[in-house]
Design a binder for these strands. Structure first.
Lengths: 225, 225
DNA sequence: AGCTCATTTCGTTCCAAACCGAAACATAGG
DNA sequence: CCTATGTTTCGGTTTGGAACGAAATGAGCT
């Protein structure tokens, strides 16, 4: 059941790709830990989440990309939850602008990054999705990203349909490595309370340097250059 | 809710891409029409199905390819429903062998058709999925398929992940036209009670003629040549 | 108009499951 | 050991919604 509010809230929390404790997930769903535990054991039985016991904590995370992709595709179909307060509006807008879709960039920024890489010849469309070109590997390594050097395996990625933009963006191993690298580089910063990502000044400047044009600003932001 | 048995049965029935009356769908779910009507109005409110009133009948069908793709991806994640009786086993095996996934071929046969067309150079992988090559268009037209002549729009298709085979196959407009054409040609025949497709002798012979090798038989079938 | 049949609406019953609090269990740390 | 904390299990309450039958609605047919 996906429309069950408590489970939906827990799964939404897990969609940032991180592992969360049972108590944290229960809090995210505004229910008591005992109730949350029951939900988590159901999700565990379904095989949608997996658990990593660490000491007295039990960290839950999504069981894999397939589950994440399924949940994202559900978000694309489900009617937008009602947005009432200004705070909710801001949060929703932040998600549409840039977020983690399990392990890769999504939202407006994820899409323009993907399309920029394609236009730049750093990414190539293949049967199943995307592949990094030799020029792209060199370029990414030059930016300081690890895991794209020539000696390693050919890095492939699949496509992922964005529920907010309704356009394709890069996912799969390639998308994951790219997002990881850009986070490590400090071009993006995680919102600790959601799966939204904030573009740092470093990231904005880096995008302009690589692609020769400014990164789109989130609507409603201060329109200074 | 997708695990609700009645709704799941109705949606499974609709996954063959056809439109069904409220009574037929209720029967497929083994519930009374009044109960079925309540479910259908919920699905309607969600935007997952749409209704086409015709006389005193109201024909329901899936609201589009996105919904169908979502339901198929759910089937890929959900644990296989328990198969008990020999009849259920036969039905399940028929679905795995060849079925309609909303509007295009799926199952083993859908996958080998796709891979055959690719190997043959009639289909080409592109960014978003597949495109028919000029040679492919000529070949398909020569087989008697409509809608692939050179003068018409370039026919593009997207990929669809098969829940039973876990391999990609051709969907989208191209996949739809291909399935329609092959049905019209009499190479496949619909099972009136499910979304299974039966390969006719014509279809078996046609496949061998085009691809130079026999179509895989469903396991457990009579192994005569 | 009167009949039939498909569908929906309404009223009601009933069960599954969502929820909580208390208690049990497990692990970390003093 | 003993305590503090995170998690699950257990009982019990409550509620949402899935189900049915009866009646209302609406479209075709004669």
């Amino acid at each position: 059941m996906l429309v069950e509010p408590a489970r939906a809230a827990m799964l939404a929390r897990l969609l940032d790709g991180r592992a969360w404790t049972a108590t944290e997930l229960s809090a995210a769903a505004s229910i008591r830990p005992s109730t949350g535990s029951a939900h988590l054991s159901k999700l565990l039985a379904l095989g949608w989440v997996e658990v990593l016991p660490q000491g007295r904590h039990r960290y839950y995370r999504l069981a894999g990309q397939e589950v994440a992709a399924f949940l994202e595709s559900f978000a694309r179909l489900a009617p937008d939850p009602e947005v009432r307060t200004p705070g909710e509006r801001r949060a929703s807008e932040a998600l549409r602008h840039c977020r983690l879709c399990y392990d890769h960039l999504a939202g407006r920024v994820g899409v323009v990054w993907t399309e920029g890489l394609l236009a730049h010849g750093w990414l190539e469309a293949s049967a199943a999705g995307y592949t990094a070109t030799p020029a792209g590997r060199r370029g990414l390594v030059a930016l300081g990203l690890a895991g794209f050097d020539e000696t390693s395996e050919p890095v492939a990625g699949r496509t992922c349909m964005d529920w907010s933009e309704r356009r394709l963006h890069i996912a799969g191993p390639l998308g994951r490595d790219l997002a990881r690298g850009l986070l490590t580089l400090g071009w993006f910063q995680r919102d600790p309370r959601s799966r939204a990502l904030w573009v740092t000044p470093l990231g904005r400047e880096g995008y302009r340097r690589v692609f020769g044009r400014p990164l789109p600003e989130p609507p409603g932001s201060d329109p200074r250059g």
